[in-house]
Structures are given as structure tokens and as C-alpha cells.
Amino acid sequence: MSTANPATVEIHDGAEWQPVCAWADLVPGRGVAVLVGGDQIAVYRDRAGQLYAIDNHDPFSGAYVMSRGILGSRGDVPVVMSPMYKQAFDLRTGTCLDEQIPALRVWPVRASESACDSASPLSMPVAETSQPAAAGVRET
């Protein structure tokens, strides 16, 4: 866990950390979808409290449903399984473990102790950037 009393989940949109939901919004082992700028992002929390943020777009079905997948592990790799056709994706890198396709975009995500009002998303600044800015999260 990145912080002792997590209250807010934040995503780095390439320019700055954006609060996207309350820590309590996340059920361990599941995710939610959030809107950051024009992007739909799936945010998950695993049973140990680790946070992940990947593209909500399921490349196989074309539907924006990755946030509704089940979290688990494949060997040592933490994964999310697409709810549509059940392919597994590495939560850390967005890489699909079942078929060779381009990795899903991932975003840096963290918990902070300051509370945010997740019901007022319009107050959150939204940065228009297409940079993945994921260097802190991507593992190679």
C-alpha cells in the first residue's frame, strides 16, 4: 500500500495527478471505470491494496468493459480477465498474455490521504494529452 490511510485514488494524466475516485469505491479484486479527459480508464485494487489503471477498451470485442473483469494471477503475473472473451492482461504493463496484440495503455495510479469529492468530477482538471506517461509503472 502506498499510503497509511488511503482516501483518494489518483491517476497521472501526463501532466499532473488527477483524483478519480474514492478508495472506498474500489472492491478488492474488482475495478471501476473512470473518465479522464476523453479517456476511459479501468482502475482496480487487488486484495493486497495494490492499484492498477489500464485502458477500459477491450481490444477483442471493441467494447469499453475492461473495468468489469475479474482480477487474478497467471503464475506470478497479476492479471485482469476481460469479461467478454476472457483473455488475460498483465495489470502492470497492459500486455495480453493470450494473444499477440499491442499492449493496452497503462496509467500511473496512486492512493493519497486527502479526501476528494468523487461525485464532482467536473471540478477535476482534465489534461488533453495522448502521452502514455507511464514510465513509473511500466515494467520491462
Binding site: P19, V20, C21, D25, V27, V32, A33, V34, L35, V36, Q40, V43, A63, Y64, S118, A119, P121, L122, M124
Partner: peptide, 18 residues
């Protein structure tokens, strides 16, 4: 009931891709 939203940070916004 609170989980039934398209976006956690925009509960009133419908998913524009549907």
C-alpha cells in the same frame, strides 16, 4: 446501487461508446 454507474468519477454520465 452506487456501483451501477458507467464512470465512478462521473455517475451521471452515460457511456458514450454504447
Amino acid at each position: 446501487v452506487r456501483r451501477f454507474v458507467s464512470f465512478a468519477n462521473a455517475p451521471g454520465t452515460p457511456d458514450p461508446t454504447v
